[in-house]
Design a protein around this nucleic acid. Structure first.
Length: 423
DNA sequence: TCTGGGGTCCTAGGACCC
DNA sequence: TCTGGGGTCCTAGGACCC
């Protein structure tokens, strides 16, 4: 279970001797959720473990352990399909508080090596170890030490190291798990050129298809493409994408202290059986809204725009949103607004597969306004008289766990879902 | 009995104002 | 009285990421 190093064009690496210019790393935790489960359940080690939604309830795979992957199990695959491919797999819905805990331990290791850390998700972070910017040590030595220290926590990671984020990200995927892939300065263009465009972050299936129509399939071809074609695919970002393809991106890895300016908070749920009864829809909305409200209050956020997201059983979906007169963190105010949005499109016979509610457009504390017709607190957030009750419930939940208390409609909805699931 | 849940960012059209 | 144009806000939708 050693980590392994792989140096792209190592003849040149030896020639260069020491690193010149920026050194950006991307650390990606290997099969992270599944690895934490195997760490916490020793009897699961060496066996196929799948973290995800249940195969019986329209779930998908979140993470498959490396033992499950030879069977063809992949992230985002419908759970029913994964179960057919690997019937002996051990399934779990996951333990996100625990993943967050291990993740912050890993991020603390990165932060101890350099102050320039950009966490992009629970299991990924960029870090800047440019010689001279913070320390003067060899970037390869630092990266290898990070891998060793992460392994001591009981999970493993792969690292890509290069002159910018694009190169580091692609390099990190080259050799998993436990790989350290180094793209020495000066070799990035040759490293990128033969790769499919889809490898590059920011190019998804739509951009890939549009590029293929112009016979552009590799990153090298993208780098040489006509400006007009790139503009058609990427709009104002055309030349930025060309720079990335040329290995010329100049990326900033900001400090780990950078403020967490979240833009939206939402909750959604896909139901094992479609909701068709309007009362069930309202109950589900109350339940989801309550969780959004709790998360807003926890972070001290108050939003002005409420968004309702729907997916229907026949595949299509809709989002409807409305701007509220005041920012709020109180579900007693924004859930009724969401209900009115649903009223505006509701028809009998609607089959709702997924329902979501979100809040965004958070109040800028500097630009708070008050109003004579509504109760508004110091931050300018509007409150209902029921908010005090919501806050009390938040506290009980925190103390005794999520299942400790629920409002009447939410509890009723839970029962409805259980009953439906069994039907 | 085939498709989750959390996000960010961008675009385009209509309303409205000047 | 036959018709311009710019700016901004709001809304819906889509692409993309992990």
């Amino acid at each position: 279970m050693e980590n392994h190093e792989h140096i792209f064009d190592d003849s040149l690496a030896n020639l260069v001797g020491s690193w010149s210019g920026p050194a950006i790393g991307l650390m990606d935790l290997d099969a992270f959720f599944a690895s934490v489960e195997q760490l916490d359940h020793p009897e699961w080690r060496g066996k196929p473990v799948i973290v995800g939604g249940s195969p019986q309830e329209r779930g998908v795979v979140s993470t498959a352990s490396y033992e499950a992957r030879p069977f063809g199990v992949r992230s985002a695959m419908p759970s029913a399909q994964a179960q057919r491919l690997c019937p002996q797999a051990i399934w779990t819905h996951g333990h996100f508080d625990r993943y967050r805990e291990v993740s912050s331990q890993v991020m603390a290791i990165l932060a101890s090596e350099t102050p320039f850390v950009d966490q992009v998700s629970i299991d990924e972070a960029f870090f800047d170890i440019t010689p001279g910017r913070f320390a003067n040590e060899s970037p390869i030595a630092i990266a290898a030490r990070i891998q060793r220290r992460v392994r001591e926590l009981g999970v493993t990671c792969s690292i890509g190291l290069g002159c910018n984020k694009t190169v580091a990200k692609i390099a990190s995927e080259r050799d998993k798990p436990r790989g350290l892939t180094v793209v020495p300065p000066g070799t990035e263009r040759a490293f990128l050129a033969p790769l499919p465009v889809r490898t590059m972050s920011g190019i998804g299936s739509a951009a890939e298809a549009a590029l293929a129509r112009a016979h552009i399939r590799t990153i090298g071809q993208l780098a040489q493409a006509d400006h007009a074609i790139l503009t058609k695919v990427f709009g104002v970002n055309a030349e930025m994408m060309r720079d990335r393809a040329l290995g010329r991106e100049r990326s900033e890895v900001t400090s780990i202290d950078a403020v967490d300016d979240v833009k939206s908070v939402s909750n959604e749920r896909t139901f094992a059986h479609d909701l068709t009864d309007r009362a069930d829809v309202d109950a589900a909305l109350a339940l989801l809204g309550e969780s959004v409200g709790r998360r807003l209050r926890k972070r001290g956020l108050a939003g002005r725009t409420v968004t309702v997201k729907l997916k229907f059983s026949y595949g299509s979906g809709r989002t409807i949103q409305r701007k509220l007169p005041h920012p709020t963190d109180d579900e007693n105010l924004f859930v009724p607004a969401a209900r009115e949005l649903i009223d505006s499109i509701w028809f009998d016979g609607m089959h709702i597969r997924l329902l979501g509610i979100g809040m965004s457009d958070f109040a800028d504390e500097a630009a708070v306004q008050t109003d004579l017709f509504c109760e508004v607190d110091e931050r300018g957030a509007a409150h209902s008289d029921k908010r005090d009750l919501s806050v009390a419930v938040d506290k009980v939940r925190e103390k005794f766990g999520a299942g400790a208390v629920g409002f009447g409609r939410a509890a009723r909805f839970d029962r409805d879902v259980v009953r439906q699931d069994k039907a």
